[in-house]
Structure formats: C-alpha cells, structure tokens
C-alpha cells in the first residue's frame, strides 16, 4: 500500500476501505500505521482459517456432530443403554425393532437388547480403533520423519522395513497371534493392528519431509544452530500436521472395519465382550428371519466408518492451503 492511492480518497472524505471497521486514525501517514489497523480486521491465524473452512464443509460438520454424539453415547453406555449388554429376557426373545420396552434394534434369541449391545459394541470398537490410530500415527510419523530427514542408508533401511510390513498378510499374522497368545483381548488386537497400519503414513511423512528439508526455512533454522531433533520436530513436523491428521482419520475408519472383520471371523474380540463384528457374526446364522441382528450393527458400523471418512475429507480440504475457498 503506497500512499498515493490513499491520499486523494481522504481529500474527498472517503476513507480507505481498511480504515472503516476500526475507526482508526483517518490520516494514517503511510504504511507504518496502516498494518496495525488492518491487523484487527484481517489477521487470521491459520487456526482461524482452518476452522472457517472446516465449518463451511457441511457434510464434514454433520459427520463430526454425529461422531461426537456416538462417542459420548458409547462411552456412557452404562448410563444410556436401557439394558446391560448381557441381560437375558427369554420372554422378549426375537422381538423386531420396536419402541416398546425401548428395544430400538430388537432383541436376539436370548432376548438380549440389541440397541444396548450395539452401544457397548461400538464402545469396544472405538476403543480398539482409537488406540490403533494413535499408536500407528506415532510409529508412522517417527519412521517417516527420520527416513525423510536423514535420507541415505537410514532412509533405505526404514523404507525396506515399511515395504516388508506392507506385504505381510495381516490376516495370517492375526491368526498366528491369536493362536499364540490366546484370542479376544481388545488391547492386544489394537497393538497388532497398529503395528500393521502405520506404513502409509510413514511413506506420506517421508515424502513431505523430503521436500521440507530443502526449504529455506529449514536451512535457516540449521544456520541458527538448531539441532536435528529440534529441526525435525519443532520446525518440520508442524508443517506436516495436515497429512498426518487426515491419515489418522483414514486409519481410524480402516481400523474399525478391520477389527469388525476380525471379530466377525472369530479371531478378533471374543464374545461375550460385544464388538460390532461380534454382533454381526452372532446374527449371521439367523439372517433370514432375524434380519435386525445383522443389519443394525452393520448400519452402525457403516455410519461410523462413513462419517469418519467425511470428517477426514473436510479436514483435508480445510488443511490444504493450495485449495481455494469456493
């Protein structure tokens, strides 16, 4: 902003647009004062920009609200669920979904309330998936950061290990692990899944680090005496946060589905602990007559996985600085 276009406007009594909202000094002499006036109006931290973009993404916002409700409900299952997950009431067995007796999702052959079971099952599934997402994100980020920052043989070794993990058949590993340690512990399943699901993030972070390390600000940090660790985790990692967060949502959705698959196959979470996959499997044998036993937990699974993906979508759009607001 040079002074020339501003001055004539003042003469005609029309304030420059920047001056309007704050009622700042009308005769701001040049730029020394102008920026400080503009600041109040225009300065948006990246966080604010991100929030605005994300809030505009209706599908993602809707999904986020839905997810938050689900999470709150699942983790307060004891209080919210009308029944406990293993409460048997044979008199009400095989009830289809109804509002009577609050059996929204019906009951199974033993008269257990399926709404309550899905609620408790969702909690188990979310716990497993959440743990998987956190642990795998940590492993993937650290691996990718070290590989991308140091390059050379360290990079080669780490990436070959990553390749190796990618080609390991997850199902075989889980079967072996299940027969080895006995099955059914959600915590152990989460750890094993995390050890298998960090690979894509490691590759993404490595790629971002490879390009970031050539940036001038990294060079500048190095020139001002910053150590490798500081450069990696204070200067480069915050610039990688977008892809990491987005990938985390993808892993979260994938983990929920894989956990359900494993439980469905009987090598994941063991009954009587309810998990979504366990519930779907329970209803499988009587799908022709008691359809709600598979459909209801199945719908819950799909709804959760889908909304996590939508949130991930919204995050990606909001965090991508190259994408213009429409």
């Amino acid at each position: 902003m040079t002074e020339r276009p501003v001055t004539p406007r003042h003469e005609h009594g029309i304030p420059a647009p920047q001056d309007q909202p704050s009622g700042a000094p009308q005769l701001s002499d040049g730029a020394d004062e102008l920026p400080s006036n503009i600041v109040e109006v225009e300065a948006r931290s990246q966080w604010q920009l991100f929030r605005r973009k994300f809030f505009r993404h209706k599908l993602a916002m809707g999904s986020l609200v839905f997810l938050i409700l689900i999470v709150i409900a699942a983790f307060n299952a004891e209080r919210i669920a009308p029944y406990s997950y293993d409460e048997i009431d044979v008199l009400r067995a095989n009830t289809p979904p109804t509002f009577q007796g609050l059996h929204f999702f019906g009951t199974d052959q033993l008269g257990r309330d399926y709404f309550s079971r899905v609620l408790f099952g969702t909690r188990t599934s979310l716990r497993v998936a959440g743990l998987v997402a956190v642990v795998s994100t940590f492993i993937g980020t650290v691996t990718g950061a070290i590989a991308g920052y140091y390059r050379g043989w360290i990079d080669s070794v780490l990436m070959r290990i990553t390749d190796l993990v990618i080609i390991i058949p997850a199902l075989a590993i889980l079967l072996v692990a299940a027969s080895f340690f006995g099955q059914g512990d959600p915590l152990r399943i989460a750890i094993i899944l995390a050890l298998l699901l960090w690979t894509s993030l490691a590759r993404i972070v490595r790629g971002v680090f490879l390009s970031l390390r050539e940036k001038e600000f990294v060079q500048a940090a190095r020139a001002s005496g910053a150590s490798d660790l500081r450069i990696m985790f204070r200067h480069m990692l915050p610039n990688t946060i977008g892809p990491i967060v987005v990938n985390m949502t993808l892993v979260l959705a994938a983990a929920i589905i894989i956990e359900a698959t494993l439980s469905f196959l009987g090598i994941g979470v063991n009954p009587p602990t309810p998990a979504l996959g366990v519930l779907i499997n329970d209803g499988r044998s009587s799908m022709q007559t008691l359809w709600w036993l598979t459909i209801m937990p199945g719908l819950a699974l799909v709804a959760i996985a889908l909304s996590i993906n939508f949130v991930g979508d919204g995050l990606r759009d909001a965090l991508d600085p190259t994408q213009q607001e429409s």
């Binding site: 940036k215 600000f217 060079q219 500048a220 204070r234 915050p238």
Partner: peptide
C-alpha cells in the same frame, strides 16, 4: 518469503 517457518 521462504526463510521463515510458516506455521510458527
């Protein structure tokens, strides 16, 4: 333009 870290 490029020698400062954009996120700090």
């Amino acid at each position: 333009m490029t020698s400062m870290n954009p996120v700090l």
